[in-house]
Amino acid sequence: MSRFEQIDYAVEDGIATITLNRPDSGNAFTQIMRRELIEAFDAVDGDDDVRVAIVTGAGKNFCVGADLSGSTPDKPFSYSGAGQSDTQSTPELVDGVPRDGGGMVTLRIAEVRKPVIAAINGAAVGVGVTLTLPMDIRICAESSRFGLVFARRGIIQEAASSWFLPRIVGVSQAMEWVATGRLVPAAEAREGRLVSRVVPDAELLSVARAIAADIVANTSGLSVAAARRMFWSSLSEASPWTAHLHETRIIAALKQAPDAAEGVTSFFEKRAPAFPGRVSSDLPPLPEWPVRPTSLSTGTTEGAQQ
């Protein structure tokens, strides 16, 4: 039984499946969902038995965007939804205003040490798209549609997507989708590199689980965690020399970690590996990422809501 209200969290065979679970509202994003997603990724990071996370949506859609049912003219984007205020946490402030809730989730996903697969079903609109950008592998169903609709609502893209999106699809493609705010079909999303695969609707979760199972069965959790951090942290480096220096240090450390011997031994013995390393205790020091600006002014205020 999931301990969450608006998402489901289940672990089986080393795979954590996180399901946005407000199907009657298209899994619209709320403050409660924000907090629960952060808690779910805390659980992923804190459980050495979890090797991979899959994120998907219950029902027909992945996420239709922020729940605007509680909006008013003076608070047009409450992000809470009618009756969906989160009484268990108060958002941090940046320069006196509440932090963007989507960004709080995506930055937590960015920090996670396990690979994350987005299995995108149906509509993914607004935060339903940007939520997936720090995930490592994005696959979608043939019926999926994507909408970066922010300019059509008088706001701009959120969830740190100004950083993620152009790095994934390029500035020109990002601006076309954001400036028009139009719905993008699955085939175009694949062509534009937003997703790596488009699969029949009925096969979406089975394909995602097959990818996850391959990772669990055949790879070292230490290696995958280090590779994930190096890929993301290197995106903003000015020179490949920085990657070279980090890789040299990490490779030397991993050679002394328990998984390297098992990887070589299992290869010569022609058997599946049984990597003993634990991400919580055996992972060598990695580059910090995302690096939080030292000048960032944050705080909390009682009862603050977006």
Score class of each variant (00 low, 15 high):
residue 101 G to V: 08
residue 108 R to H: 09
residue 235 L to K: 03
residue 180 T to L: 06
residue 128 G to Q: 05
residue 224 V to M: 11
residue 296 L to V: 11
residue 63 C to R: 12
residue 36 E to K: 03
residue 115 P to N: 00
residue 192 G to S: 04
residue 97 V to N: 03
residue 152 R to M: 13
residue 161 S to I: 08
residue 220 S to P: 02
residue 232 W to I: 04
residue 284 P to A: 00
residue 83 G to V: 02
residue 164 F to R: 00
residue 41 F to S: 01
residue 5 E to R: 14
residue 140 C to M: 00
residue 209 R to D: 10
residue 91 P to Q: 10
residue 149 V to E: 03
residue 114 K to N: 10
residue 295 S to W: 13
residue 171 V to C: 01
residue 26 G to W: 12
residue 166 P to A: 08
residue 37 L to Y: 12
residue 290 P to R: 07
residue 135 M to L: 02
residue 145 R to S: 09
residue 283 L to P: 08
residue 264 V to S: 07
residue 254 L to W: 03
residue 189 A to C: 07
residue 255 K to L: 15
residue 60 K to S: 12
residue 144 S to W: 05
residue 17 T to M: 07
residue 277 G to V: 13
residue 26 G to Q: 12
residue 304 A to S: 13
residue 187 A to C: 07
residue 225 A to S: 15
residue 142 E to I: 04
residue 42 D to Y: 01
residue 135 M to W: 00
residue 288 E to T: 14
residue 254 L to I: 07
residue 124 A to E: 03
residue 35 R to Q: 09
residue 100 D to H: 03
residue 225 A to H: 08
residue 237 E to T: 05
residue 46 G to F: 13
residue 134 P to S: 03
residue 46 G to C: 05
residue 166 P to W: 12
residue 146 F to I: 12
residue 134 P to R: 08
residue 228 R to P: 04
residue 297 S to V: 15
residue 228 R to A: 04
residue 282 D to G: 06
residue 125 V to A: 10
residue 51 R to A: 11
residue 120 I to L: 00
residue 262 E to V: 15
residue 289 W to V: 01
residue 198 V to H: 01
residue 87 T to M: 10
residue 96 G to E: 11
residue 111 E to L: 06
residue 275 F to Q: 01
residue 285 P to C: 01
residue 85 S to W: 15
residue 4 F to A: 05
residue 110 A to L: 03
residue 31 Q to N: 09
residue 1 M to D: 13
residue 195 V to I: 05
residue 72 T to K: 11
residue 266 S to I: 15
residue 216 V to M: 06
residue 277 G to M: 06
residue 70 G to S: 02
residue 202 A to G: 06
residue 130 T to Y: 10
residue 188 E to C: 07
residue 266 S to H: 08
residue 79 Y to E: 11
residue 161 S to Q: 12
residue 272 A to R: 15
residue 102 G to M: 04
residue 124 A to Y: 03
residue 86 D to K: 05
residue 177 W to A: 05
residue 237 E to M: 02
residue 303 G to M: 06
residue 49 D to G: 12
residue 159 A to F: 03
residue 97 V to Y: 09
residue 291 V to P: 02
residue 88 Q to A: 14
residue 183 L to M: 14
residue 130 T to G: 03
residue 75 K to W: 06
residue 4 F to T: 09
residue 55 V to L: 05
residue 166 P to V: 13
residue 41 F to G: 01
residue 161 S to G: 07
residue 275 F to C: 00
residue 270 K to D: 14
residue 110 A to D: 10
residue 272 A to G: 15
residue 186 A to N: 13
residue 179 A to P: 01
residue 151 A to Q: 14
residue 249 R to W: 11
residue 78 S to W: 02
residue 161 S to R: 10
residue 220 S to I: 15
residue 296 L to K: 07
residue 146 F to S: 01
residue 212 A to L: 06
residue 101 G to W: 11
residue 94 V to Q: 10
residue 135 M to T: 11
residue 89 S to V: 10
residue 143 S to N: 09
residue 195 V to F: 01
residue 30 T to I: 05
residue 217 A to P: 01
residue 108 R to Q: 09
residue 277 G to F: 09
residue 11 V to T: 14
residue 262 E to W: 09
residue 162 S to H: 09
residue 305 Q to K: 13
residue 236 S to D: 12
residue 201 D to E: 04
residue 90 T to A: 15
residue 188 E to W: 05
residue 172 S to W: 11
residue 299 G to N: 12
residue 169 V to S: 05
residue 252 A to P: 14
residue 295 S to I: 13
residue 47 D to Q: 07
